[in-house]
């Protein structure tokens, strides 16, 4: 459809103003992370010189690199666990027929109603009693099972023609092999989407890493940022912002790359 000019102008105006407000905090942080401290303290908005000092200090004074590595490992672990468990469960719900399947499916739906935050106390005790505090395992284990991921993949698997399964049955291929050699490759796009989503959520996790880490050994970058913020003097805003930028950079890049797929995948998963 052809859009009248005035409508275009109004739209671009709305879009630009909105974009400014949405993006302002992040831009501000980015600018401040390069801005010399004196200028920050005087309330400058546009700096007249840039410096890398804050970044250097952030890395020097804090084990940021090790925090980043920890976050990466934990996020990858959670992502892999979720992909494996969700795809296995989704496979059972789509391709296997057995008594009690519907009851189990309701059990999965029911898990959506239990907030992790409400069951955090026993979870902490479990991990503590298993001596898993301050371990990658302890950080990632509670998040492996995932109802949302199961639903999302179930939607995708349902779109695979059942004839593919039947053809493989006639060829004498077992379920495990069909799952590995046909279902997973065919559903690659959705697996990537879910993986990105799982990675993002895991990277950004706050409450659990706060509880499950008591020292620097496996501390994630989010909790590192909290420490940076609470231990720094208030006039070290540049260092704090540099830390913030380092924390969001990986996820933002991932998001920019996968925005379209993520949107499609999440919408599909959300709306059965």
């Amino acid at each position: 459809m052809i859009m009248p000019l005035y409508k275009k102008v109004v739209l671009y105006l709305l879009l630009s103003v909105s974009a400014f407000f949405i993006f302002a905090p992040a831009i501000m942080a980015l600018v401040m992370s390069f801005m010399p401290s004196e200028q920050i303290l005087t309330g400058t908005i546009i700096p007249d010189s840039l410096t890398l000092d804050h970044y250097r200090q952030a890395f020097e004074r804090f084990p940021l690199l090790s925090y980043l590595t920890n976050s990466l490992i934990v996020s990858l672990l959670i992502m892999a666990g979720q992909l494996l468990l969700s795809s296995l469960a989704a496979y059972a719900f789509v391709f296997l027929e057995f008594k009690g399947r519907d009851a189990l499916f309701f059990l999965f739906i029911a898990t959506m109603m239990i907030p992790f935050e409400a069951s955090i106390i026993p979870n902490f005790q479990t991990i503590r009693d298993m001596n898993l505090l301050n371990t990658y395992t302890g950080l990632s284990l509670p998040f492996f099972a995932m109802a949302f991921g199961t639903f999302l993949l179930r939607q995708t698997f349902k779109q695979i023609p059942k004839e593919l399964k039947e053809a493989s049955e006639i060829a004498g291929m077992g379920d495990l092999k069909f799952y590995l050699t046909v279902v997973l490759p065919v559903a690659k796009t959705s697996l990537v989407t879910l993986g990105v989503y799982g990675f993002l959520s895991a990277w950004n996790m706050y409450l659990w890493p706060l509880l499950a880490t008591t020292d620097d050994s496996v501390r994630t970058v989010q909790i590192g940022l909290k420490q940076l913020q609470s231990q720094e003097q208030l006039n070290e805003w540049g260092v704090i912002m540099a830390g913030g930028i380092i924390v969001v950079l990986p996820t933002l890049i991932l998001l920019f790359l996968g925005q379209k797929k993520l949107q499609k995948g999440l919408t599909e998963g959300a709306l059965k």
Partner: peptide
């Protein structure tokens, strides 16, 4: 596409980082 990316960007910003940004604001 640029606007869409900007609007969805806060999804990639963690609670900790967002809090730090807003703390200064």
């Amino acid at each position: 596409g640029v606007f869409r990316t900007i609007f969805s960007s806060t999804m990639g910003i963690s609670v900790a980082a967002a809090s730090v940004f807003w703390m200064f604001l």
